[in-house]
């Protein structure tokens, strides 16, 4: 893999607690431009929290998060780093989007409008251009015949594929995927993972994924980070991490997820 910028996304000394529960303590790592990194680890180890902080859905207590040289929650004013204005956050956030475990399609919009609403009203694309692109993306996820359906008329797998098209429609530089198949039956999960495999092959968007689908993680990621109790305990290529994990905790975790499936 060739990364033009090895520090495209940076977490530096990030701390997060919920009440007394310290979830992330002094977390630092970086992700290169175009890199696809999978976060694995037991439930409650802080994976979702990391993605949510990048999506500005959860604020870190301390530390900085950077995206391509800009801080997400801070602005440079002279030499000083000051808390970011809403405008600054919105600007940096415009490069990132997220697909959620429970799809979160807008039930008040039909499928095509779910996909075109942000391109038209956030990116300011002309309507016909946004619709052409929306149809193309829905075609790509295998739903070219569902443009006029209501989300409630679709299966979970179809809804998640719409959500993926909706995310791609805003031309993100960074795509966050949080257990996007966990709410789906295995068969429906497989169709979503196939779509994501295709997308991973054909785009150079930087991806942070959380998944328990280990075969998929092995296929698409450049790098895997093993989390335990808010810390990265292993950071390796998928071949290395899945075939010859170093840590006992990684081994036992991998055994447990493989037993599950």
């Amino acid at each position: 893999m060739t990364t033009t910028n090895g520090e495209f996304i940076t977490f530096d000394g990030v701390h997060k607690s919920f009440g007394k529960n310290v979830v992330l303590d002094d977390l630092s790592f970086s992700v290169g431009e175009g890199e696809r990194v999978t976060l694995i680890g037991p439930s409650g180890s802080g994976k979702t929290t990391i993605l949510r902080m990048l999506m500005t859905l959860t604020r870190p207590d301390r530390g900085t998060i950077g995206v391509d040289g800009d801080y997400l929650y801070h602005e440079k004013r002279g030499d000083q780093l000051v808390p970011a204005s809403d405008g600054h956050i919105r600007k940096v956030r415009s490069r990132i989007t997220m697909v959620f475990q429970h799809f979160n399609l807008f039930p008040n919009m039909k499928v095509l409008r779910n996909v075109t609403e942000a391109p038209i009203h956030v990116l300011g694309k002309p309507k016909d251009e946004a619709e052409a692109r929306g149809k193309e993306l829905l075609e790509l996820v295998g739903l070219g015949d569902k443009l006029d359906a209501h989300p409630s008329q679709l299966s979970g797998g179809q809804q998640q594929r719409v959500a993926i098209a909706r995310a791609l429609a805003v031309d993100p530089d960074v795509l966050l995927l949080d257990e996007v198949t966990s709410a789906l039956d295995p068969e429906l999960a497989a169709e979503v993972l196939d779509v994501l495999r295709d997308i991973a092959k054909t785009t150079d968007v930087t991806m942070l994924l959380v998944t328990h689908a280990m075969k998929f993680a092995r296929d698409v990621s450049h790098r895997v980070l093993m989390f335990n109790e808010g810390r990265i305990i292993e950071d390796a290529s998928p071949e290395q991490l899945f075939n010859e994990p170093e840590h006992e905790r990684t081994k036992s975790f991998l055994r447990s997820v493989i037993d599950e499936t």
């Binding site: 999506m55 415009s94 959620f100 979160n104 609403e117 009203h121 909706r166 805003v170």
Partner: peptide
């Protein structure tokens, strides 16, 4: 309205008013 709806809207970078 489920919080996930607002979170999806934030992920698409809608303004608070939108």
């Amino acid at each position: 309205v489920p919080p996930g709806q607002i979170e999806a809207a934030i992920a698409l970078n809608f303004t608070p008013w939108q």
